[in-house]
């Protein structure tokens, strides 16, 4: 099944029409400078069904899931949920995991809490 706007809306439960384009999400985002597409652009691009650039963008994996945009959005748009939905739509496809178990040993250090590994797999692998 092709990834389309409806699928993203369905997975995320977000209604991008609520957005008044104030940009507070992007004003708030702590990962902004690491992102090619910013939270407000996710909302706009999903609403406009302009998905191709998002599906191919590293920005999907840059979101910190810190929920600051969700907390501060005046109109309850919840941009982070939308970003998560696009990411899930991508990694749920066969062979599209963003993190593979084989890569893991090289990333470990003795101090690293288990939580880091668990959440990375939950975030980047299906």
């Amino acid at each position: 099944m092709a990834i389309d706007r409806e699928m993203i809306l369905q997975i995320s439960g977000v209604n991008p029409k609520l957005c008044m384009k104030c940009g507070k999400c992007s004003g708030t985002c702590p990962a902004y400078d690491g992102m090619e597409y910013h939270p407000h652009q996710f909302v706009s691009m999903v609403e406009n069904a302009n998905l191709e650039p998002l599906l191919a963008s590293e920005s999907l994996y840059t979101c910190l899931s810190c929920m600051a945009c969700i907390q501060r959005c005046p109109r309850q748009v919840e941009p982070a949920k939308l970003i998560e939905a696009v990411r899930l739509a991508v990694i749920r496809q066969q062979g599209c995991d963003h993190l593979l178990p084989d890569e893991l040993p090289a990333l470990l250090d003795p101090e690293l809490p288990q939580q880091a590994i668990v959440t990375a797999f939950r975030k980047y692998k299906k």
Binding site: P30, A31, Y61, T62, L64, S65, C66, A68, H98, L99, L104, L107, L112, A116, I117, T119, A120, K123, Y124
Partner: peptide, 10 residues
């Protein structure tokens, strides 16, 4: 504000 913890590995 977020410490970026989820990005530690990735």
């Amino acid at each position: 504000e977020c410490c970026g913890g989820y990005q530690t590995l990735n």
